[in-house]
C-alpha cells in the first residue's frame, strides 16, 4: 500500500468538481426519504412510502424500461454511424466531406420541439406507427453530431498511413479499419456511447411527439409535473438508479483491481505499460 499523501492539485480539483456534480444527487437521495411531497427544506421526517408507491407504479417502471432500451439502441447505432462518418471525413480528402460535416452537426442546432413535430408529420405520412423504435431512430439523429465530433477529434492527428501499414501486412482495407483504426479510437467510441446514451435517456421534446404509447421516463415525468404529490416517487426512482449505477461501477472497479492483483501480466497492466 502506498503511503497516504496530500492529493495533487489536479486530484483536488477533480474531487471538488465531483463533489459539485454529486451534491444535487445526494440531496435528491436524502429527500427521497422525506415525509413531505414538497421538495423543500426543512426535512420533515423519515418515510419509505415513496419507494412503496414506486413499486406499485407499473407505468413508471415501464417507462424506465423503454428509456433504457431506446437509449441503448440509439447510442449504439449513433456511435456506429458516427464512426463511419468520422473516418470518412478525417481520412479522405474528397469533395462532399465539408457538406457532410456541416449537415451531420446541424441537428445540434434545431430546437427539438420543431424537429419532433416535423418528424411526427413525416412518420404519419409514411404510415410508420409511433413507437419506441421511432423515437429511438430519431434520437440517433440528435446523437450523431456528438458521436462524429468526439470520434473525429480523436482520429485527427493519427498518422494517415496506419491502415496502409496494416494493408502492407496483408490485411484488406476493411480488416485494417476493424483491427487497427477501431482499437485506436476505442476510448472515443466509449465516450461517444456514454454521451449519446445520456442524451437519449434524458431527451423529452422529440420523444414526447414520437413514442406514442411507449412512454419514456422524461415524457412520463414532464406529464407528471401536473401532480406534485407524485414527484417524490420519481425522485425515489432516480435515487435507485443512482445507487444501482454507483454500485455496479464500484463492483466493476473492484473486479478490475482483483483481476490485476491475481494476474499481474493480465491485459490491463500490460497494455498500460506498453502505452506509457
Amino acid at each position: 500500500m502506498p503511503k497516504l499523501k496530500l492529493p495533487s492539485p489536479g486530484a483536488l480539483y477533480v474531487g471538488i468538481i465531483c463533489a459539485l456534480l454529486y451534491l444535487p444527487i445526494a440531496l435528491l437521495i436524502v429527500f427521497s426519504f422525506n415525509d413531505a411531497a414538497s421538495l423543500t427544506f426543512p426535512f420533515k421526517g423519515f418515510t419509505l412510502q415513496w419507494y412503496q408507491q414506486l413499486g406499485q407504479s407499473s407505468e413508471l417502471l415501464a417507462s424506465l424500461r423503454n428509456s433504457l432500451v431506446i437509449a441503448f439502441g440509439s447510442s449504439v447505432l449513433a456511435t456506429i454511424l458516427g464512426t463511419m462518418g468520422a473516418i470518412a471525413i478525417v481520412r479522405f480528402n474528397l469533395p462532399g466531406r465539408g457538406i457532410f460535416l456541416a449537415v451531420s452537426t446541424m441537428p445540434l442546432v434545431i430546437p427539438y420541439v420543431i424537429l419532433g413535430v416535423a418528424l411526427l408529420i413525416l412518420l404519419n405520412q409514411a404510415g410508420i406507427p409511433l413507437s419506441a423504435p421511432a423515437a429511438g431512430f430519431a434520437h440517433v439523429i440528435i446523437s450523431i453530431p456528438y458521436a462524429i465530433l468526439i470520434i473525429s477529434s480523436r482520429l485527427v492527428g493519427f498518422p494517415d498511413n496506419l491502415e496502409e501499414a496494416a494493408m502492407d501486412l496483408g490485411a484488406s482495407y476493411w480488416e485494417a479499419l476493424l483491427k487497427v483504426t477501431i482499437p485506436i479510437v476505442s476510448p472515443a467510441l466509449l465516450a461517444s456511447f456514454l454521451l449519446c446514451f445520456t442524451i437519449s435517456f434524458d431527451e423529452y421534446s422529440i420523444a414526447s411527439f414520437l413514442v406514442g404509447t411507449d412512454t419514456t421516463l422524461p415524457v412520463y415525468m414532464f406529464s407528471q409535473l401536473r401532480f406534485p404529490t407524485r414527484l417524490p416517487m420519481i425522485i425515489a426512482m432516480a435515487a435507485i438508479i443512482m445507487t444501482v449505477t454507483m454500485l455496479a461501477m464500484l463492483i466493476s472497479e473492484w473486479l478490475r483491481r482483483a483481476g490485476q492483483h491475481t494476474s499481474p501480466t493480465g491485459g490491463g497492466i500490460a497494455s498500460r505499460k506498453a502505452k506509457a
Binding site: I17, L23, P24, L39, I235, A238, M249
Partner: peptide, 28 residues
C-alpha cells in the same frame, strides 16, 4: 489506471434526469 473509472464517475450524475437535477439546484 483510474482513468475510466473517473470518467464514469463524472458521467453518471448525468443519468439522473436533468429536470430532477434542476429541482435539486433549487434546493441549493
Amino acid at each position: 489506471s483510474q482513468k475510466n473509472t473517473l470518467m464514469m464517475l463524472l458521467i453518471i450524475p448525468t443519468w439522473t434526469s436533468y429536470l430532477l437535477r434542476i429541482f435539486a439546484w433549487k434546493l441549493i
